[in-house]
Design a protein around this nucleic acid. Structure first.
Length: 163
DNA sequence: GCCAACGTTGGC
DNA sequence: GCCAACGTTGGC
């Protein structure tokens, strides 16, 4: 049976709520609180352990891709839906019939420099990348391999220092 | 803080 | 099933 091709992803997070630095400290976390069906379906149906994830800071200064994470579990129920104290509580969701699913993410690396949204938008090789689309709010989104590689190249480019 | 873009809700 | 109203996301 042929292995299915590896996929690449981008997740958004507001650093005031959960920054890449928090993931670095925690090493691994359940990607809870996603309440959008398209994003949920990506986690439930399409993400596989080991796949790489661009970690993007939204509502930040600057906004952009700040590092890399990887998928660290199969999909499982998002526990916050069962907690009446949680902002993400979902009335009627049960463990037998959960509505919201998530995966665990693990820290991989922090980029030496942020690849800003402005850079992403300005790069012709990234034409069509979802995160650059105006009004694109999807918080878990697929990334084409070519775009993924290009973002890594931008992250690893170094300014030439004068002699 | 503004507001455009989008997703969801609910009246009909 | 339509669609207006509303709430949220997220860039700027």
């Amino acid at each position: 049976m042929p292995a299915r091709p590896r996929r690449y992803w981008l997740v958004k997070s507001e650093p005031e709520l959960y920054a890449l630095g928090d993931l670095e400290r925690d090493r691994r976390t359940a990607w809870e609180g996603v309440r959008n069906y398209q994003a949920r379906n990506s986690m439930k149906d399409d993400m596989a352990p080991g796949e790489l994830v661009l970690f993007y800071h939204s509502n930040a200064e600057p906004t952009g891709v700040v590092g890399l994470a990887k998928v660290a579990s199969a999909a499982h129920a998002d526990e916050t839906q069962f907690d009446p104290e949680s902002d993400y509580y979902e009335r009627g969701a049960t463990r037998a019939d959960p509505r919201w699913m998530c995966v665990d993410l693990a820290f991989v690396e922090r980029f030496a420099k942020v690849v800003t949204l402005a850079e992403l938008k300005a790069d012709p090789e990234l034409d069509g990348m979802l995160v650059t689309r105006r009004g694109m709010r999807l918080s878990v989104q697929p990334v084409e391999l070519g775009h993924f590689r290009r973002v890594l190249a931008l992250a690893r480019a170094r300014t030439k220092l004068p002699k």
